[in-house]
């Protein structure tokens, strides 16, 4: 079993990151090399600078705000929380410090996970209702479930750390995760078990497995909208 854990925690991480990076770059190159659309796809009226307008459309989602305010609220919450989540994972690396080096907490102190969980539950429940249910395909449910379990296991790790009062509230500390990630970044291929001592290590492995799957699927899924939402909004602005 330890071998399986090791494969998930070390080689599969490299594989996932490589598939994600190469996949995303290859998709973007393929899209960039596809023939240019022969005519303008602009919607009028066009006000203000196109690029800034497209940035506003991409990150502010004004069309959703106007027509589906509740969805917009959760979308905004979700995307903001996801950005904080990425930052908080970078914060784990010893070389990249956003919070003080001795801080026992991740950015948001667990609130980010709660926000993401709530948003993902909303997205999932929304999919069960008509007419969204009828346009939903299996990959929509599976992606949401993957994200939901990814966030839930992440939150569980965070809660599990806080619950152990005997060890000062933290079994596997933020600094321990930092050592694990530092080992990965420096290609040391060490067994993570040597720095991650907690009894809930299985949850950590599960979390990393789901994160790996997420990274591997990203270039082949609708999450590619992360990278192409801006160019698409530029087309609507007449670029």
């Amino acid at each position: 079993m330890n071998t399986v854990y090791y494969l998930i925690m070390v080689p599969m991480v490299y594989l996932a990151v490589a598939v994600c990076l190469i996949g995303v770059i290859a998709r973007l190159i393929a899209l960039g090399r596809a023939p240019r659309h022969p005519h303008s796809l602009a919607i009028f009226p066009q006000r203000g600078p196109r690029f800034l307008g497209a940035l506003g459309d991409t990150f502010g989602m004004p069309t959703v705000r106007r027509h589906q305010p509740l969805l917009w609220f959760f979308l905004l919450l979700y995307h903001l929380a996801f950005l904080v989540l990425i930052a908080s994972h970078f914060d784990l690396f010893p070389g990249i410090r956003i919070l003080p080096a001795d801080s026992p907490h991740m950015i948001g102190a667990g609130a980010v996970g709660v926000v993401l969980t709530l948003a993902l539950f909303y997205f999932l429940i929304r999919r069960f209702r008509s007419p969204i249910r009828e346009i939903t395909v299996p990959s929509d449910y599976l992606l949401l479930l993957l994200l939901l379990f990814l966030v839930l296991t992440g939150s569980t790790i965070s809660w599990a750390n806080s619950w152990n009062s005997e060890a000062g509230g933290f079994v596997i500390t933020k600094q321990d995760f930092g050592l694990y990630l530092d080992g990965l970044a420096r290609f040391r291929f060490e067994d993570p078990r040597e720095v991650l001592y907690g009894s809930h290590y299985i949850v950590v492995v599960l979390h990393v497995l789901l994160a790996n799957l997420f990274l591997i699927l990203l270039p082949f899924s609708k999450i590619m909208h992360t990278f192409i939402a801006l160019p698409m909004n530029r087309l609507r602005r007449g670029a």
Binding site: A34, H37, Q68, L71, I135, K222
Partner: peptide, 22 residues
């Protein structure tokens, strides 16, 4: 008909359903 724009239109839809009442 698969220009870059159309490919993006076909690949990126998240089935959010915002367009349905339009």
């Amino acid at each position: 008909r698969l220009t870059g724009a159309v490919r993006m239109y076909l690949e990126a839809c998240t089935h959010c359903g915002t367009c349905i009442p339009a």
